[in-house]
């Protein structure tokens, strides 16, 4: 029992964990959150862009209704950016203990992974939904709802990450 407590105290006092300081762990988490969200958004937008450009060649008037569908996978990149910026805002990075830096790193992972995958799949579903707009422009509202459902999980990931930041900062 005493040994376990002593171990926990040692971890709390440690300047580095796994060879990285708290500062470094936190920055790694922030970077990963942005990399995940940004890469997912880039892939998702590219995917829907291929389809949208084809539609626009045939019917340039559909640019307006298609724009939200093209832009929506881009939001995950914004969530990644928000996470990346919140890390230095929430925490005093140079003084961050190793265990806290590690916790910040883990707290960033929901955004990093969920935003990456959701942006990619949102690109796929936006491309499918573009077909609705291609056929009937007036269906643009309904078409946007389908990929917007995928967005929910990226929002949940961001909420969870921010909530964990507040708990870590506690």
């Amino acid at each position: 029992m005493f040994g376990a407590l002593q171990g926990a105290v040692n971890v709390a006092k440690a300047v580095t964990w796994g060879g990285l300081t708290g500062y470094q762990w936190a920055i790694l988490g922030a970077a990963l959150a942005f990399i995940g969200g940004g890469m997912g958004s880039a892939v998702g937008i590219t995917y829907v862009n291929h389809v949208a450009s084809g539609i626009l060649v045939e019917d340039p008037d559909k640019f307006g209704p298609l724009l939200p569908l093209i832009a929506i996978p881009g939001t995950q990149g914004v969530y990644g950016l928000i996470t990346g910026i919140l890390v230095p805002i929430f925490f005093d990075l140079p003084k961050l203990p190793a265990y806290q830096g590690l916790l910040v790193f883990f707290a960033c992972l929901p955004v990093a992974f969920v935003c990456f995958l959701s942006a990619v799949y949102q690109g796929l579903s936006s491309a499918s939904a573009s077909g609705m707009v291609a056929r009937r422009t007036e269906e643009a509202g309904k078409a946007l709802i389908l990929p917007a459902l995928v967005e929910t999980y990226a929002v949940f990931a961001l909420i969870l990450t921010i909530y964990l930041f507040t708990q870590i900062k506690g």
């Binding site: 590219t46 995917y47 862009n49 291929h50 389809v51 949208a52 450009s53 084809g54 539609i55 626009l56 060649v57 045939e58 019917d59 796929l124 491309a127 573009s130 077909g131 291609a134 056929r135």
Partner: peptide, 13 residues
């Protein structure tokens, strides 16, 4: 998607 996306977009119209 990258190979057929543009063609599919045009076909959708």
């Amino acid at each position: 998607g990258s190979t057929y996306g543009h063609a599919v977009g045009r076909i959708m119209v």
